[in-house]
């Protein structure tokens, strides 16, 4: 696989003293969905801003689609799509007009644009609202419009900065589905940032955990979770028979701990491991009366790799940076 984004020793210092990004190095392969996971102020948006040519880097080297972000910004801009954190769709235009404007700005021929707009509006289920003013849209609809705007010129790399921030759970799930559909239907590379573990887990091929401007860990979600000890399935099987061996020999199981008639089973992926596990037990005559699934949360992953909990990070160390990043956003 060839790297479509290459970042080497990237440093970004704001106002001479705030090191928002502190020497990070990583590659993203073509066709990959890569996610940056970290608390607010970790340096995620700063990295995206540098890669999308909105921000001048302090030192280091970045290329996107083979173009240097400093020396060939226009080539970079032409090959990427950006869905920013803020809702930037125009309230006083209709959804379709917003799309058409975006198409023109990206040099898509009007004839091609018209077809693509219909296609994309259908993809994000906005056909019916297409000719309504965006000011009548809900937050979720705006975000979906924003996503489809980022796709109008069929970019090779799509940048999604906190794609589901502030959305309700239903809308978040829909957004995830759209992103998954995209991945399936095209070989587009997606770079996203998030501070939701579930999001990174369900969408990304690979995750980089970032905190205080440094990458603390980078791997597939499965491996990261495995290194944390994976998911925990708790089951209860009343009776005298010990099922420890049966459970242990089921595929995907990492370890078992028995306490009276309760078992704590560590598995790589709880969602896929639960059903086979229950089948194995019932094959051996066990009657399961209770099942629950615990998954490692953001706090645990974060704690594991940064040595502090996410809440602490947002309150203490990360706080100044959070304030700084807000200030930056305002002053940009």
């Amino acid at each position: 696989m060839t790297a479509i984004i290459e970042v080497k020793d990237l440093v970004k210092v704001y106002n001479g003293n705030i090191r928002a990004v502190d020497g990070i190095t990583f590659d993203v392969a073509e066709g990959e969905v890569f996610g940056f996971l970290g608390p607010n102020g970790a340096g995620k948006t700063t990295t995206i801003s540098v890669l999308t040519t909105l921000l001048q880097l302090t030192s280091g080297e970045c290329t996107v689609c083979g173009y240097d972000v400093v020396k060939q910004p226009t080539d970079v801009r032409r090959s990427i799509g950006l869905v920013p954190q803020e809702l930037t769709v125009d309230d006083d235009l209709t959804g379709r007009e917003n799309m058409m404007l975006q198409a023109t700005l990206y040099g898509v021929e009007p004839k091609v644009a018209k077809e693509r707009i219909d296609e994309l509006l259908a993809l994000v289920k906005l056909e019916e609202a297409a000719d309504r003013m965006v000011k009548t849209y809900s937050g979720g609809m705006r975000k979906r419009l924003e996503l489809s705007e980022g796709l109008i010129h069929r970019p090779r790399v799509l940048f999604l900065d906190e794609p589901t921030l502030g959305l309700d759970i239903q809308t978040r799930t829909t957004m995830w589905q759209h992103i998954r559909d995209l991945k399936k239907s095209s070989n587009m590379t997606v770079f996203l940032t998030t501070h939701y573990l579930e999001e990174a887990d369900s969408l990304c091929d690979r995750i980089g955990i970032i905190d205080m401007g440094k990458i603390m860990a980078m791997d597939t979600p499965a491996t990261l979770k495995k290194s944390l000890g994976g998911d925990v399935i708790s089951i209860k099987i009343p009776g005298e028979v010990d099922y420890t061996d049966v459970i242990q020999s089921t595929s995907g199981v990492l370890s078992v701990k028995k306490e009276d008639s309760s078992y704590r089973v560590k598995v790589i992926n709880g969602e896929t491991a639960t059903a086979p596990l229950l089948q194995e037990i019932s094959k051996k005559g066990g009657a399961v009366t209770y099942v629950s699934l615990e998954r490692p949360n953001m706090d645990q992953v974060f704690l594991e790799y940064t040595g502090r909990s996410l809440r602490d990070a947002e309150q203490s160390g990360g706080f100044d940076k959070l304030a700084a990043s807000r200030q930056m956003r305002r002053s940009r």
Partner: peptide, 14 residues
């Protein structure tokens, strides 16, 4: 600028 539209324009190949 406030609503990020200016940044969107700055990111566009225009």
């Amino acid at each position: 600028r406030r609503f990020g539209f200016l940044n969107k324009l700055r990111a566009a190949p225009i």
